[in-house]
């Protein structure tokens, strides 16, 4: 593979890693030294976060100086992925705030998500709603009555 990743992706992900490592370094700065053992709880997270920081910087430098051609991305459906992610966030938030029962929220979520992915084609909508309701109410029955597991939601 003689093509490189889009440097924006490479640098963006490296920056995310630097942020995570910096958070860990910040969180570890006030940890006390060990009292009953020589090492204490701070050095290992500091060392690990420090190494992530250095290696991520190396990735950024390499992405900036690399002159190989950029790999062409396939015709991706980023909008679809973003929409599914957004709907999932709303679904989880609705369950977090217990806006309705698991069965109802799941039915709504699946109707919206599957419906979006099939572009709300009219002839498919009855199937979508049927499958969504069967899954939502079916899961609620199976998990609470058969497996006796608590479910999120009201």
């Amino acid at each position: 593979m003689n093509e490189r990743i889009d440097p924006r992706v490479e640098i963006g992900v490296a920056l995310m890693l630097i942020l995570i490592a910096s958070l860990a370094l910040f969180g570890a700065k006030d940890l006390p030294p060990g009292r009953f053992e020589p090492l204490g709880s701070a050095p290992v997270p500091r060392a690990v976060a420090g190494m992530i920081l250095l290696l991520s910087l190396w990735i950024i430098v390499r992405a900036l100086i690399d002159k190989r051609p950029i790999a062409t991305a396939a015709a991706d459906r980023y909008l679809d992925a973003g929409a599914v992610l957004l709907l999932t966030l709303l679904f989880v938030a609705a369950m977090h705030y217990r806006l309705a029962t698991f069965a109802i929220l799941t039915t709504l979520y699946l109707t919206a998500t599957i419906g979006f992915l099939v572009r709300f084609r009219r002839h498919q909508l009855p199937w979508v709603i049927g499958i969504a309701a069967a899954t939502g109410f079916g899961f609620q029955y199976v998990f609470t009555r058969v497996f006796v597991v608590d479910l999120p939601g009201l």
């Binding site: 599914v84 999932t88 699946l110 992915l117 899961f139």
Partner: peptide
């Protein structure tokens, strides 16, 4: 298109459980 959203619901149940 049908399978993936249903798996997400399973993921939510799994993590919550």
């Amino acid at each position: 298109t049908y399978l993936l959203p249903i798996i997400i619901v399973c993921c939510v149940i799994g993590a919550f459980g």
